[in-house]
Design a protein around this nucleic acid. Sequence first.
DNA 1: GATATTATTGAACACTGTATTCGGTATCGA
DNA 2: TCGATACCGAATACAGTGTTCAATAATATC
Lengths: 183, 183
Amino acid sequence: MDRRQKRTREAIFQAFTGLLSEKSFEKITVGEILERADVGRATFYAHFETKDFLLKELCEELFCHIFDSVSKPEIQHRHIFTCEEGDSVFLHLLKHLKNNDNNILKLLVGQNNELFLQYFKKGLLRLIKSQLSLFEERKSTILPEDFWINHIASTFVETVRWWVDHGMKESPETVAEYFSLAV
Amino acid sequence: MDRRQKRTREAIFQAFTGLLSEKSFEKITVGEILERADVGRATFYAHFETKDFLLKELCEELFCHIFDSVSKPEIQHRHIFTCEEGDSVFLHLLKHLKNNDNNILKLLVGQNNELFLQYFKKGLLRLIKSQLSLFEERKSTILPEDFWINHIASTFVETVRWWVDHGMKESPETVAEYFSLAV
DNA sequence: GATATTATTGAACACTGTATTCGGTATCGA
DNA sequence: TCGATACCGAATACAGTGTTCAATAATATC
C-alpha cells in the first residue's frame, strides 16, 4: 500500500473518530471530516464509497482489534465468567476497553452508539458460541440455547454500557464480578 | 382541536408508521410522508417542527399508551415477575405487545429501532423504580441498586427483542417464564 | 344560514449537504 | 530519472430540508 494512501486513510479515521466523540454520526458532514483530516473531497470518495462505508470500516477495524486480543491461544480456552489461573475472558475484555484504545469507549457511549454496540454484540455472540462447550450452567439446560446465548451477550453489552455511562468508577474486577452475579 | 387538525395529524402518523415499518428513519423523506399522507408541505411543518419531532411525538404517544395499561390500580400492585392472582406486570405487557397495537412491534424490530427501545427502556425503568418495594430478590442486596435496576430493564427489553426477532413463536406466558428464569 | 376564524394548499425559494468529474500537481516506487 | 498513481480543488448536478405567502377550503360560532 502506498504511503500516501496509508497516511490519508489514517488521517480520515483519526478525524472521524475525533468528531464521533463530539457529535453524533448523522450530524457529522463529509466537509468537516475533510477539513480536519486536511484531505481533498475527491480523495475521500476515492477511499470510501460513502460516509456510511467509512463508519462500517471503522467498526470492523476497531472490533477486529478488540476480539483478536481474546483469541490468543492462552486466553481462549478460559471460561468467560470465572477463571482460576488468570483473568477470565470478560475481565480481559474489560481491561482492554479500559485502556481506551482508539477512543473506542467514547464511541460506545453517547446517543449514536447503536452501530458500535451492534458490532460489539455480534463479536460476543461469536465468542460465546465458539466456547459453548465450556458452559455447564443450569440455565443452558432449562432455557432455549439461542435465547440463553443472546441473554449472555446482551447482559455483557449492557453491563459495559452501564459501566461507561457511570464514569467507569469501578475497577474491571468489580464489574466482572457484577456481571457474573447478574447473568 | 379542529377536526382538520386531527385528521391531518392522524394521517401523518399513519403514513409515518407505515414507512417506518418499511425502511429506517433516516431514509424516510418528508416528501414521502407528504405523498402518503396526502398533505401539503407547509401543513406538515405547521404540525411538526422537524422530522425528528415527529418521531419523538410518535414515541411518546405509543409508549404512553403501553405503560398506561399497566398503571391501572388493579395491575400496578402486582409483582413484575410472578403473580398468583392474575398476570404479572411483564406478562401483561407481553400480551399487550402481542396485540400489535399501532404496529408498535414492527417499529421495535428492524435496524433502526434504537430510539424506540430507548423509550421502552425508559418506561420500564420508571416502572421498576416505582415498584422497588415489591422486590425482595437476592440480587438487590448484593448488587448496587442502579446496576441491578438497569439489568432488569435491559433484560426485559432484550427478551422482547429476541422474541420479536424470532417471529414471536412462543406464547406470552412462555416468554414471561424465560424472562423470570434469566433475570 | 351568514360570517369571522383558522387550517390547508401548492408553488417558489434559499440553503445545506452529498457525490461526481476532470485537468493539473505532487509524491511515490523501481 | 521516469512512469505510475494518489491527491488537489474547483465546478457541478442533485436531493432533501425548512420557510414564505397569497389563495382557497373547512370549521366553529353566533
